[in-house]
Amino acid sequence: MLENVLLIVFAMIGLSLVLNLWRLVVGPSVPDRILALDTMYINSIALIVLYGIGLKTQIYFEAALLIAMIGFVSTVAVCKYLLRGDIIE
């Protein structure tokens, strides 16, 4: 039962990644593209966590946590660069 649910959720998150990629390529403005990148790394974290659940191991949860921290910092840095034109003051 759990395997079937994992396959369905993998397919749904994969579809959301494809739609995010489409928004990244076609997005009419730069903030739309930044939001698409932010959503893509959140979806990749979800895929890593699901993979860890499927393999019943905990190492993937730590990897997802590291990606979440790096993704947050990079999103803040890109937004600050767009607002001010400089990351470090």
Rank of each mutant, 00 (worst) to 15 (best):
I42M: 08
W22M: 13
Y81A: 03
L82Y: 08
M40L: 14
R84T: 15
S74T: 12
E62V: 07
D38N: 14
I67A: 08
I45V: 11
I70S: 05
I87M: 07
A68P: 04
L55S: 01
A46T: 02
F10S: 10
L47T: 05
P31K: 08
I59R: 15
V78Q: 01
I70Q: 06
D38V: 04
L82V: 06
I87K: 03
G54S: 03
T39G: 07
I42P: 02
F61L: 07
L37K: 06
L65D: 05
T57E: 07
L66E: 12
I13V: 12
V26E: 08
R33Q: 15
W22N: 11
R84F: 13
E62Q: 06
K56L: 12
G71R: 02
S16W: 08
L21I: 14
L35V: 12
Y41H: 05
S44N: 03
V76P: 00
I70N: 03
D32K: 00
L37A: 14
D86H: 15
L50W: 03
G52Q: 04
T75W: 01
M12P: 10
G85N: 09
Y41E: 00
G27T: 13
N43W: 08
C79P: 03
R33D: 10
Q58K: 04
Q58A: 00
L50Q: 06
M12A: 15
A63D: 13
V25C: 12
L50R: 07
I45A: 07
F61Y: 07
I88K: 09
I48M: 10
S29Y: 01
F72M: 04
C79K: 10
S44H: 00
L83R: 14
E89H: 15
L55T: 04
A36L: 07
L55V: 03
I8V: 13
I45L: 08
K80F: 07
S16E: 12
V5L: 14
Y60V: 14
Y51M: 11
E62A: 07
G52W: 02
A46Y: 00
K80H: 13
F10T: 11
V76F: 04
G52R: 03
I42G: 00
I53H: 05
A64S: 08
K80P: 00
V18G: 08
N43E: 15
A46E: 05
Y51W: 10
Y51Q: 13
L19Y: 13
L83E: 15
M69C: 13
A46L: 01
R33P: 06
T57R: 04
M40N: 09
R33W: 12
V9N: 08
V18Y: 02
L24S: 05
L15V: 15
T57M: 01
I8H: 09
N20T: 14
G27I: 11
I42T: 05
L7R: 04
G52S: 12
K56Y: 13
A11C: 09
I34D: 02
I70Y: 10
S74K: 01
I88P: 06
C79Q: 10
L7K: 07
I45P: 02
Q58Y: 08
L17F: 03
Y81R: 04
T75A: 02
G85T: 08
S44I: 09
M12L: 15
I59F: 08
S16F: 14
G14Q: 06
V25W: 11
V25E: 15
D38F: 06
L15G: 11
L19Q: 11
V76R: 01
G27W: 05
L7H: 07
Y51I: 13
D86F: 12
